[in-house]
């Protein structure tokens, strides 16, 4: 996660990472996601009402459809979420876990704002 005030996110993964640009910040409407393609990897990127950025894998685990970026962004008990547009399960934007089915989760990607560009950390 990062905020839109130019602070870089803390990189907690030890492996080498490259930052890839997804889009300019203004292309991200608050609470409406976009998808980006890096090689074969699909990433869903979200900007919350408060201005925080999050990135999850774009594939909905239940349907296999690459559509999580098209879900409704909101919160559950204060935790920011996106609801899958296919069968409506909610996923935490913070750690990618499914809040409606135990043991299901989607990958989480580091995301940062760099020179007004939204960038995703890839391995």
């Amino acid at each position: 996660m990062t905020t839109t005030d130019e602070r870089p996110a803390t990189d907690t993964t030890p492996t080498a990472r490259r930052w890839e640009t997804a889009c300019p910040l203004e292309r991200l409407q608050p609470e409406r996601g976009v998808a980006a393609l890096f090689g074969e990897e699909q990433v869903a990127i979200f900007r919350t009402h408060g201005g925080e950025l999050y990135a999850l894998g774009n594939v909905d685990p239940r349907s296999g459809a690459a559509v999580l970026s098209r879900g409704i962004v909101g919160d559950r008990g204060g935790e920011p979420t996106v609801a899958s547009p296919v069968y409506k399960e909610s996923f935490s934007l913070v750690d990618g876990r499914c809040l409606d089915a135990r043991g299901v989760s989607v990958p989480v990607y580091p995301v940062r704002l760099h020179d007004g560009l939204v960038q995703i950390g890839l391995r």
């Binding site: 608050p30 409406r32 349907s63 098209r70």
Partner: peptide
């Protein structure tokens, strides 16, 4: 725009494969 449900999101009906 950010409030719309799955289908209203793109003014079309989403099917099982997206």
């Amino acid at each position: 725009a950010a409030l719309q449900d799955t289908n209203d999101h793109f003014l079309a009906n989403m099917q099982r494969n997206g």
